[in-house]
Write a protein that binds this DNA or RNA. Structure first.
Lengths: 163, 163
DNA sequence: CTGAAATACTCAGTGCCCTGATTAATTCGC
DNA sequence: GCGAATTAATCAGGGCACTGAGTATTTCAG
């Protein structure tokens, strides 16, 4: 009887939350365009002409995943991909008219969906919800990227190098 | 300039949270056994002899995904799968000794990992974190399964009017 | 008892997500 | 100038997650 209670495990809750979101997205926003795909469209609305890697950074997708997502959006004709004449390694990304239209349409539906999704929480609780999740995510992210160009010295930070 | 702010989108936050968790799990718990796999082991520690579908229900995985996860655990020799003599459609699942040992080992590490993951929050905030996420997930889940076969008129249950 | 419905599982197909290795282009050191 | 890092993208491979279709078994209706 050493079983643990998964409802107190943040990882399990995170997975369930994402599944719940997936469900609502599919029924209220789109069955064609996924949430990560919308995030990419959104990043290119904000900053047209970004390269692939930077888009991935903006929306939080690694190099492999962003390549797949962009390939799908390209196949659907929602964005164009051209080699950077300044740097032959890069591809510059830009939404097509269709991509722009799609983003506008989905942005509206997404807002409605978010309202439904968060409806069980009061306005104040919704603020806490964002704040708590953001703080946990950011902290974990920082563990990966030690970051902070602090004065080169002080090895105090735990560098757990065990096995 | 119609781009939206993704940091106020619960779906985006949920995805980031899960990625953060994945990262910590990989470094602090196991590179072999994943979090969903551990959830299955845990369900079978709590209730040995469950069938595949029910395990999926317990841990929140659909029929296809649970089949894959169980197949992997079987390949690793962590569980056994035998046909139910009572009902030839079902497979009954049971952990092997190795599966039991693995669960015990990972349960300890998982507890440590959760502490690190939630360290940025105070004890009170951790409670809120669980509560808020659970409420949002449960509500979305209920939208799928309208549940409650027709409001049982009258005294169905829990009408204690004394709060 | 027998054919229809329900149920447990499998299979095919799509998409997200990561790591490690590889390729092509640029930049840096000397 | 030129070879050595560095960097952007791709490819191979493993795992999670869902839907729709198909198979086998059980249950239920008449």
């Amino acid at each position: 009887m050493a079983a643990v209670d998964l409802t107190t495990h943040p990882g399990h809750l995170a997975r369930r939350l994402q599944q719940a979101h997936y469900l609502l997205w599919n029924t209220m926003v789109s069955e064609e365009i996924t949430s990560p795909q919308f995030a990419v469209l959104n990043a290119l609305v904000a900053e047209p002409g970004l390269d692939q890697r930077t888009v991935g950074e903006r929306v939080g997708l690694d190099r492999s995943t962003i390549a797949e997502v962009i390939s799908r959006l390209g196949r659907r004709g929602l964005l164009d991909k051209v080699r950077d004449p300044q740097d032959g390694r890069r591809f510059l990304l830009r939404l097509t008219d269709d991509g722009l239209r799609t983003h506008r349409k989905l942005a509206v539906r997404t807002a409605r969906m978010n309202q439904v999704f968060l409806a069980p929480l009061s306005a104040e609780e919704q603020g806490q919800f964002f704040d708590l999740i953001r703080r946990v995510s950011d902290a974990a992210e920082d563990l990966r990227n030690p970051a902070e160009p602090t004065p080169p010295q002080g090895q105090a930070l735990a560098n757990t190098t065990h096995t």
